[in-house]
Amino acid sequence: MPPAAARRPVRLTSRLTAWLGKGLVQALLVVVALVWLVPTFGLFISSLRPSTDNATTGWWTALAHPGGLGFSNYGSILADSGITHAFWNTVLISVPTTVAVVVLASLAGYAFAWLEFPGRDVIFLLVVAMLVVPVQIGLLPVAKLFGALGIFGSLTGVILFHVAYGLPFAIFLLRNYFADIPREMLEAARMDGGSEWLIFRRLILPVAKPAIASLSIFQFLWVWNDMLVALIFADSGSQPLTVALQSQMRQFGSNIDVLAPGAFLSLVVPLIVFFAFQRHFVQGVMAGSVK
């Protein structure tokens, strides 16, 4: 038998094995994804059911009789001024915090990566050291400071706390990303007469767009889903949606017709943000894996 003919069955076997292995991995990933999606799907179905049905039967029973589902619960919750006010408070907290963290971290990361100034390495080490400080440790002293400044219980206080505790990780992440940019690119720009601000705006920011997008997603999701900081620093007029839903649960117990649509609304916005920046997020993860 010719050698080429002898090798053909081996190649077919290896290809079949690789295809089966790939198919098995894909099937496993699909199963894991479905398992993770079951609670979300159940929450959505529960938000469409009347309160009497939710009190007597499980959400999966609605799949057999989908005619009883409707959006009346969403109409009721959107008519609740407390919930809608808390929703907009969440937006007013999350968006400015994310913008402030990304802008300040980008400027600081560039300075730590490419600018020479006295004490640069020491200051950067202090910033990195802040990563190991738990949020819980800073709640009481910062609350006293904000009380002395007159911003305790306001949106400003919640935003400032999130910005302060989001900056160390953001600076560390962007500084390391900026430091991996080839020095020749910056030197060529300086030789062409570009200022540091022009280099940062026209060269650094476009190159670091994937990393900045990834940071924006993480920061937004962390602030949007936060409840601990808001419980401490927000009063009844500035509480976000997470605190408002927790208050509803504490007052009314099992009012799933209010909690389910409210929780699903709080879930929709992060999903929209993630899918809107998904392409940049994947690029940032891939770039970080090869640098």
Results as ranks from 00 to 15, higher is better:
residue 221 L to G: 08
residue 239 Q to W: 03
residue 288 G to W: 00
residue 152 F to N: 04
residue 147 G to T: 01
residue 192 D to K: 14
residue 128 V to P: 14
residue 192 D to F: 15
residue 1 M to T: 04
residue 233 F to G: 03
residue 275 F to I: 11
residue 170 A to G: 00
residue 186 L to F: 11
residue 264 F to T: 03
residue 236 S to E: 10
residue 207 V to C: 02
residue 161 F to Y: 14
residue 63 L to P: 02
residue 290 V to D: 03
residue 282 V to T: 03
residue 116 E to H: 14
residue 83 I to K: 13
residue 114 W to H: 15
residue 168 P to S: 03
residue 5 A to L: 15
residue 78 L to P: 00
residue 260 A to M: 02
residue 50 P to S: 09
residue 212 I to K: 11
residue 289 S to W: 04
residue 53 D to S: 12
residue 172 F to T: 13
residue 271 L to H: 03
residue 88 W to D: 03
residue 288 G to C: 05
residue 261 P to D: 04
residue 14 S to A: 15
residue 142 V to G: 14
residue 215 L to Q: 03
residue 247 S to L: 14
residue 163 V to Q: 05
residue 201 R to D: 07
residue 86 A to Q: 09
residue 280 H to E: 13
residue 182 P to K: 00
residue 261 P to C: 10
residue 148 A to H: 07
residue 194 G to W: 03
residue 25 V to W: 02
residue 151 I to Y: 00
residue 29 L to W: 11
residue 257 D to I: 10
residue 111 A to S: 01
residue 54 N to D: 12
residue 204 I to L: 05
residue 108 A to G: 06
residue 279 R to V: 01
residue 171 I to Q: 07
residue 200 F to A: 06
residue 266 S to I: 11
residue 284 G to S: 06
residue 52 T to K: 15
residue 240 P to G: 00
residue 130 M to F: 11
residue 290 V to N: 09
residue 236 S to K: 12
residue 139 L to T: 04
